[in-house]
């Protein structure tokens, strides 16, 4: 039974111990290489963090002249308005795209095209979309609406398409068997199954859109972001803090509203 001094080592998820060490060495090597690549030398970090204290001092207390405060309010309202409009346009456009991107409802070529569109929309950060939109149609909130609409369509139609692929085809077939036209089939067989998720997703996306709309002004696509960038470039750091507080407040309110509505109505 007791066969002398037995040893024990924790079994590893890698097949052999050498593999484990090789993976660890690889990770450490990659991190060091990345560190060198981004120029993260300790002296520079220490120097940066050393001056962080005084920089943070420059940012406090938040302050804004009455005119600046008015500008924050105006541009914030523009951000929120952009989010409102583009949530609606985004969702409206998402619905047909979602149906075309659902594998069980759409013919193969159409499916592929719409999935491709969704991938493109999801791959690019709103800032990138924003800068191209601005170049295409000029500065202002319209570019922002275009940007957020484009991002909303990618997000919304992907999730909606997945829901559509998960629906119970039995009840769809039952509706179809009763002699309904294709449109009636969708209305009575498909729509009732996805409505609850639909409402929740809409509010959720609205919340994300509020966040996005406060940023994309940085590239000139409307909203509070442009004010923020200008303040930064003028080294008006106390004003920057005031703007940031306004953004944080709006984002938190939107998150709260979204959470409450989703809990109540879905």
């Amino acid at each position: 039974m007791a066969a002398g001094n037995r040893t024990w080592e924790r079994p590893t998820v890698f097949r052999r111990r050498e593999v484990k060490w090789a993976v660890y060495v690889g990770i450490v090597g990659f991190v060091l290489w990345s560190g060198v690549g981004v120029g993260a030398d300790p002296a520079r970090i220490a120097q940066g963090l050393g001056s962080a204290g005084s920089l943070v001092g420059d940012f406090l207390p938040p302050s804004a002249t009455p005119r600046q405060a008015q500008r924050i309010a105006d541009k914030m309202l523009e951000s929120v308005a952009m989010a409102m409009v583009s949530t609606l346009t985004g969702i409206v456009l998402s619905v047909p795209i979602a149906f075309m991107a659902a594998e069980n409802l759409s013919p193969k070529p159409l499916y592929a095209i719409n999935r491709g569109f969704i991938s493109i929309s999801r791959a690019f950060n709103a800032i990138i979309v924003g800068i191209i939109a601005v170049k295409a149609i000029g500065f202002g909130p319209l570019a922002g609406i275009l940007t957020i609409t484009f991002k909303t369509v990618g997000f919304f139609s992907k999730l909606l398409a997945e829901d559509l692929e998960d629906i119970d085809m039995g009840s769809v077939n039952a509706v179809r068997a009763s002699g309904a036209s294709p449109i009636q089939t969708v209305l009575y067989g498909v729509v009732p199954q996805i409505i609850p998720r639909f409402a929740g997703l809409s509010v959720y996306r609205w919340d994300i859109n509020i966040r996005t709309s406060t940023i994309i002004g940085i590239v000139g696509a409307g909203g509070i972001g442009s004010v923020l960038l200008t303040a930064f470039n003028r080294y008006d750091y106390q004003y920057v803090t005031a703007i940031l507080l306004a953004i944080i407040a709006v984002v938190l309110v939107a998150e709260g509203v979204s959470a409450v509505v989703r809990r109540r109505y879905t």
């Binding site: 039974m1 007791a2 001094n5 037995r6 024990w8 079994p11």
Partner: peptide
């Protein structure tokens, strides 16, 4: 590091044998 003293390991094996879980340590 899971580096317990050898006598702890040995005792653990003995107790596992005693409760009927020999060979189940991993």
């Amino acid at each position: 590091r899971r580096s317990f003293p050898p006598e702890d390991i040995e005792r653990a094996y003995e107790i596992l044998d005693r409760v009927g879980l020999g060979e189940m340590e991993n």
